[in-house]
Design a protein around this nucleic acid. Structure first.
Lengths: 225, 225
DNA sequence: GTCTGTTTGAAACATACGTTTGAAGCACCG
DNA sequence: CGGTGCTTCAAACGTATGTTTCAAACAGAC
């Protein structure tokens, strides 16, 4: 077999198991079992379980990161000088995610689910790793968002960006389950692309919502009584 | 000491530790250590770790559930016949969450973080437990949402509800961290109430976004080239 | 005071985990 | 052929987990 078929088999198995069960809930024995590889192979090739987690992320995040950079390049080229609109910026992001070359048909779901888990599951080492390795495209995205929403105060923008991240990470991290539920209830099949296409207008509208009102709706003076 | 001071001490400790570390990452020994209680007490009083998790949720979810029901009652009374607006419905929910009597000042954050974890951390038993115990207020909320957005197709509504849930669960589950970050960057203090007040307009706007476009923005034919 | 049922305590149990070890296997080059 | 460097393998290591055990402590009723 090729030099490191083993490495790829471990990565494949780990990726899938992490995506469907989380990190702490996936043991090395499950991974090596699924990959049909000896238990010690993980520590031999990667060094530790945490390093394996990093490798899983690096394998799809690094290509995605460059894809994203060129997408942003194209975007800025097209509207030379003027900053891209919010809608365009968001769309460039989802396009990049969706058009990533995938290893298999579940690729995108896994990709999304892992990203969601990374944000959600508070694995300290992972957060540090991601911040170190991928701060550049992330920072650029933030800059584009800022230029696309000059009307927002930076505090407003800050919170609304968190809301966007949440809606995205959460939805994508359970996109498989959500698709299945809808499929069972209505028989409708939904592609990840379609979820993205539904998400973008939602996010754009929320981001550009009329001035936040720090007050309850006018009729609700009774609510405490 | 009172008959089951022990039970409450365990619940308090478990609640906090679960909120800050997740379920699998929190061991019974950490909990009993923090609660200053014998290790065996957990299995004696609750039966198992999973049952303890359920108990933690039940303790704050049951009162919240009844608070929410009366909030919805008030809401429907006030606008007799006509269905409440989306904004009013969302506001009733956040009001209920925010006005819940709390055990301490971090109460709301913990509450929110646990809810987020419940959705995110795919603990099968927890999902089942929550669905069984709290399907009624959840179903009612869904019904109100449906009546408040008659213009949406049920598929659109389905996805946008997921987006709302995501933005909420995610933001709230890391509200502590997000507040600290903003505090460090700008010196601005933010209350959970205020986050809720910012969230509602975002969600309402997203929910009522113009018809979802399944197409990229007009200028982006180049994006694949 | 003594008995009874409940609660606590220290210790052990069995199991699962991540990691390490050292021998065996293998491909390649001299 | 013999040796060298990388890879695989079965087995074990040490540690941590959830759970169980059973004796001690306790409270309340008689």
């Amino acid at each position: 077999m090729a030099q490191s078929d083993t490495v790829d088999r471990i990565l494949d198995a780990a990726e899938e198991l992490f995506a469907e069960r989380g990190f702490s809930e996936t043991s090395l024995r499950m991974i090596t079992g699924k990959a049909k590889v000896n238990l010690a192979a993980v520590n031999y090739h990667f060094g530790s379980k945490n390093a394996l987690i990093h490798a899983v992320f690096a394998r799809f995040l690094s290509p995605f990161s460059t894809t994203l950079e060129t997408a942003f390049d194209n975007l800025e080229d097209r509207c030379d000088g003027k900053p891209p609109t919010l809608y365009e910026t968001l769309w460039a992001l989802t396009e990049s995610a969706v058009r990533m070359p995938q290893r298999n048909d579940r690729g995108i779901s896994i990709f999304m689910r892992l990203l969601g888990l990374a944000y959600t599951q508070s694995q300290g080492h992972l957060r540090k790793f991601l911040e170190q390795e991928y701060s550049q495209p992330f920072g650029r995205f933030m800059r584009l968002l800022k230029e696309a929403t000059p009307e927002l105060s930076s505090v407003d923008r800050y919170w609304r960006i968190q809301f966007m991240l949440g809606a995205t990470a959460f939805t994508m991290s359970s996109s498989d389950a959500l698709r299945d539920i809808l499929q069972n209830k209505t028989g409708i099949e939904t592609s990840v692309q379609e979820i993205g296409a539904r998400l973008v207008p939602f996010l754009a509208a929320g981001m550009q919502a009329p001035d936040k009102l720090l007050t309850p709706p006018p009729e609700s003076k009774v609510s405490v009584a």
